[in-house]
């Protein structure tokens, strides 16, 4: 995989274009702010805070969170194309990817168990324990992703 990436013209473009890396990094920050901002509202409401917000209406923010995730998926792939040798064997990167997978499973848990019944909950009431658990897990996992990502340049490879 690594070897194949090094032969692509996209790899050469990312490495040889001076503004590509800083641009994608900046977009990566925009994407994470959008995604985490939207998730704060949704997750904190799931936890039972912000009860002034109707819980069903907070779900309107999920497309914004997905858009932020999409920006970061794209820019993240660009980093991977530009410098595959740095990432694939990197412990920090591997932990980050593992946390993203776990966060994805948490989303699945939400969709399968909470998404349906939530529609009938009173909009401004407290939430059941399972919803609180999902909200807390989401915040913990995504902050873990953020920290691991920020540490990638500082944690040694291998």
């Amino acid at each position: 995989m690594e070897q194949w990436i090094l032969t692509t013209s996209l790899h050469t473009w990312v490495i040889d274009t001076p503004w590509a890396w800083p641009l994608f990094e900046t977009l990566h920050f925009f994407g994470l702010s959008l995604m985490l901002g939207a998730l704060f509202v949704v997750d904190l409401r799931l936890v039972g805070l912000f009860r002034g917000l109707s819980i069903q209406r907070t779900l309107q923010l999920l497309p914004w969170a997905s858009f932020g995730f999409g920006i970061n998926l794209f820019t993240g792939l660009m980093f991977l194309m530009g410098d595959p040798e740095r990432y694939f064997s990197h412990t920090g990167f591997r932990i980050k990817m593992l946390l993203i997978v776990l966060a994805g499973i948490n989303v699945l848990w939400f969709v399968l168990r909470i998404g349906g019944p939530l529609q009938t909950w009173p909009g401004h009431s407290n939430t059941p324990l399972e919803a609180k658990l999902i909200g807390v897990l989401s915040l913990v996992l995504w902050f873990g992703v953020l920290i691991m990502g920020r540490l990638i340049p500082y944690v040694s490879t291998g």
Partner: peptide
């Protein structure tokens, strides 16, 4: 980075 996500994320919303 955590503070950035909290400030920029919350204010952006």
């Amino acid at each position: 980075a955590i503070g950035l996500a909290v400030v920029a994320g919350s204010l952006a919303m």
